[in-house]
Amino acid sequence: MHLNLAGRTALVSGSTQGIGAAIAAGLARSGARVAVNGRSEAGVEEAVTRLAEQVPDGDFVPVPADLATEEGAARALDLLPDVNILVNNLGIFEARPALEITDAEWRRYFEVNVLSAVRLTRAYLPGMVRRGWGRVLYIASDSAVVTPAEMIHYGTSKTALLAVNRGFAKEAAGTGVTVNAVLAGPTHTGGVETYVYQLVDPGLPWDEAQRLFMREHRPLSLLQRLIEPEEIANMVVYLASDHSSATTGGALRVDGGYVDAIIP
């Protein structure tokens, strides 16, 4: 299967590191022009340099903007008026006891994890519909379905994102634009390493800490290891391609079998 995205422009929110950076690299390898996003100009430029080393023939565009704010979304739209592929990857997470999560934290998780995606979809979906082709993707999580006791604010925000996904898919019905969510399972990123060490002995070597985390905190995983960011990116690139034209309104799992269900 040849996934050719030549001639397409993609925006990946929160793509200076982790899953977002892997998605940016994967889209570029398939020929897309990829807008790399982060909050600071310096951070975005550094990410573009790293990505260009990974994908020497890639076409990367820096889009520094805080997409968790209205002003940041407007700046992104000014810098990049039209996109064919929108990947709403921006998200935050942290382990917190449920009864200690403040109103301010709940609002912040909604702003960053949900409303940032709503704003970008609202900005770019109409152009996709006019052109008769487009892809809107939301990077959700197994936590949207299996709410983690140690971060219910994060899980709730990802559950909301699935509803956002389904609603916008209905808005785009019959237009040639598809809208899908990807349920990412426990993934090996720098942020997740920090999170793992919040839950297990920080003095343990990484391999041992990862095994203990999976055994004690993610025992339902059939993969029994953390997923690599490139494995999430593979699904995103497929969904961004013409080959996925009959898939819309879905929540597709790249969760290592963590969600114990027999349907997607």
Rank of each mutant, 00 (worst) to 15 (best):
Trp133Tyr: 06
Gly7Cys: 05
Ala42Asn: 11
Ala28Cys: 07
Gly203Asn: 10
Pro126Asn: 03
Phe110Val: 13
Glu46Gln: 14
Asn37His: 04
Ala25Glu: 06
Val164Phe: 02
Ala173Ile: 07
Arg211Asp: 13
Leu99Phe: 15
Gly43Val: 00
Ile227His: 05
Ala240Lys: 04
Ile232Arg: 00
Arg218Val: 13
Leu99Lys: 12
Ala123Lys: 10
Ser245Trp: 12
Met151Asn: 12
Leu115Met: 14
Val259Cys: 07
Val179Ser: 02
Asp82Leu: 09
Asn4Ala: 10
Leu86Val: 06
Asp82Phe: 13
Asp242Cys: 07
Val55Glu: 09
Asp66Ile: 02
Leu223Ala: 14
Tyr138Ser: 11
Gly250Leu: 10
Val55Ala: 08
Thr187Met: 05
Pro62Met: 08
Ser221Leu: 09
Val55Lys: 00
Ile152Leu: 10
Thr178Asp: 10
Asn165Leu: 03
Tyr154Val: 01
Ile101Lys: 01
Ala160Gly: 11
Gly190Val: 11
Thr102Arg: 09
Gly134Ile: 08
His188Asn: 15
Gly14Val: 06
Arg39Glu: 08
Ala160Ser: 12
Leu239Asp: 05
Leu239Gln: 03
Pro81Gly: 08
Glu111His: 10
Glu150Asp: 14
Asp255Pro: 11
Ala240Val: 06
Asn88Glu: 07
Ala104Ile: 06
Ala240Met: 10
Phe60Gln: 03
Asn88Met: 05
Ala25Met: 01
Ala104Cys: 04
Asn37Thr: 04
Ala261Met: 13
Val164Ser: 09
Glu216Ile: 12
Arg218His: 12
Gly250Met: 12
Tyr109Glu: 06
Phe110Cys: 08
Val237Phe: 06
Ala104Thr: 14
Asn234Phe: 12
Pro97Gln: 02
Glu45Asp: 15
Leu51Cys: 05
Thr189Phe: 01
Ser13Cys: 04
Leu220His: 15
Arg131Asn: 14
Arg215Met: 07
